[in-house]
Design a binder for these strands. Structure first.
Length: 309
DNA sequence: GAGCCGTGGTT
DNA sequence: TAACCAAGGCT
C-alpha cells in the first residue's frame, strides 16, 4: 500500500493507516458538498485548461486568475494555438497576474508539447516535469486533476492542513521538507480515484476553511481529529515568515517597465522607459534583467518591445 | 538552500 | 500602515 521505501514498525504503520481512514472520508465528503465551481474543474476544461490554470495559480489568487483564464482559453484553446503565437503575446495576455516569467514558460511548455507530444498535454509525471515552468507540485497537480492519477499534491494549502491536522503545528516549514513529502505519500489513498479526489479535497479545505489566518474550525470536517486544535492551537514557533518588502526593489522596477511594454502597440524608445524610475543604475539593471530573462527584446536604435520570438 | 521573481487584496 | 498572503519554479 503506502509502503514507503523505509519501512516503519507495524505499530507506526497501523497508526498511520488509522489516521488516513479518519481523514479521507470526511474531507472528501466535505469536498463533494463545498467545492467551488471553478472553470478548470469542469468536465470540458480538459488537460490544457487544467495546466493553464495551474500556471496562473502559482502564487496568484483564484479571483484574479478567473478572467484571464477565460480569455486565455478562448484565444488559445489548444497548446498548438499558443505555440504558434509570439511569446510576447503570452506576456501581454498575462496582464497583471504577476511573475510574468510564468507566461513565458507556459508559452515554452506549449511549444514543447506541440513538438514533443503531438500537441497533447503529456500524461506522465516525468514528461510533465520536463516542461518549462512545471515543478514537482504542478506536475503532480496536472497528473492528478487532469488525468485522475495517484500523486501526492503538495501545495501550500495541503501543507498547512497536514501541519495542523496531523503534525499539530500552526504552519508548515518555509520550504517543503522530505518529512512533508513522506507524510503526504503515506496519507495518499491506495485507490487512484480516491487519491485524486483526496488531493483536490485537501487542497480545497486549506483554501476555504483551514486558511492561514482566521481559520474556521467550526466548518472543518476533521476538527475533531485535528492535532493542532486538540493541542490548544499553539502559536507558531521559530523564525517569522520572511516578509519580502516590495517597494524600491528591482521587482517593482521590472514590473513598471513591463507594464509600459504590455500596453504599447509599437516598440518603445528608451526615453519612455526611463520615466518609470528615476534611479538610473537600478533602472538599467532591471531592464537588462528583463532582456536576459527573455521578457523584453531590444531592437536597434534604443527601442524595446515584448519578444517576437 | 536561500534568494529572487509581480501584483493587489486583506489585516 | 506595514506586513502578510495567494494552487511555485528556478538558479
Amino acid at each position: 500500500m503506502t509502503a514507503p521505501t523505509k519501512p516503519t514498525s507495524h505499530a507506526q504503520a497501523d497508526a498511520q493507516e488509522t489516521v488516513s481512514d479518519d481523514l479521507h472520508a470526511p474531507v472528501i465528503d466535505w469536498f463533494e458538498d463545498n467545492a467551488r465551481d471553478l472553470p478548470w474543474r469542469r468536465a470540458d476544461a480538459g488537460p490544457w485548461g487544467v495546466m493553464v490554470s495551474e500556471f496562473m495559480l502559482q502564487q496568484t489568487p483564484v479571483s484574479r486568475v478567473l478572467p484571464v483564464y477565460e480569455q486565455w482559453l478562448a484565444r488559445w484553446p489548444r497548446p498548438a494555438d499558443l505555440a504558434e503565437d509570439a511569446p510576447g503575446e503570452a506576456v501581454r495576455a498575462w496582464g497583471r497576474l504577476g511573475y510574468p516569467r510564468r507566461a513565458l514558460r507556459l508559452h515554452g511548455a506549449a511549444v514543447a508539447i506541440t513538438e514533443r507530444h503531438g500537441g497533447d498535454v503529456p500524461t506522465e509525471h516525468a514528461q510533465l516535469l520536463a516542461l518549462p515552468g512545471i515543478g514537482e507540485y504542478t506536475a503532480a497537480a496536472v497528473a492528478s486533476f487532469a488525468y485522475g492519477q495517484r500523486h501526492a499534491v503538495l501545495d501550500t494549502n495541503v501543507r498547512r492542513v497536514f501541519a495542523r491536522a496531523v503534525t499539530g503545528v500552526q504552519y508548515p516549514p518555509n520550504a517543503t521538507t522530505a518529512a512533508e513529502r513522506k507524510l503526504a505519500r503515506a496519507l495518499l489513498p491506495d485507490d487512484e480515484r480516491t487519491a485524486s479526489l483526496w488531493a483536490a479535497a485537501s487542497m480545497e479545505l486549506g483554501a476555504l476553511v483551514c486558511t492561514a489566518k482566521n481559520e474556521s474550525c467550526v466548518r472543518c470536517p476533521i476538527a475533531a481529529q485535528c492535532a493542532w486544535r486538540l493541542g490548544g492551537k499553539p502559536a507558531h514557533e521559530g523564525p517569522p515568515r520572511r516578509g519580502q518588502t516590495y517597494a524600491g526593489t528591482d521587482r517593482q522596477v521590472r514590473g513598471r517597465l513591463l507594464a509600459v511594454l504590455r500596453e504599447a502597440v509599437a516598440p518603445v524608445p528608451q526615453s519612455v522607459l526611463d520615466r518609470v524610475w528615476d534611479e538610473p543604475v537600478q533602472r538599467a539593471r532591471a531592464l537588462d534583467g528583463l532582456v536576459a530573462d527573455g521578457l523584453v527584446e531590444p531592437l536597434a536604435g534604443g527601442l524595446y518591445r515584448l519578444p517576437l520570438s
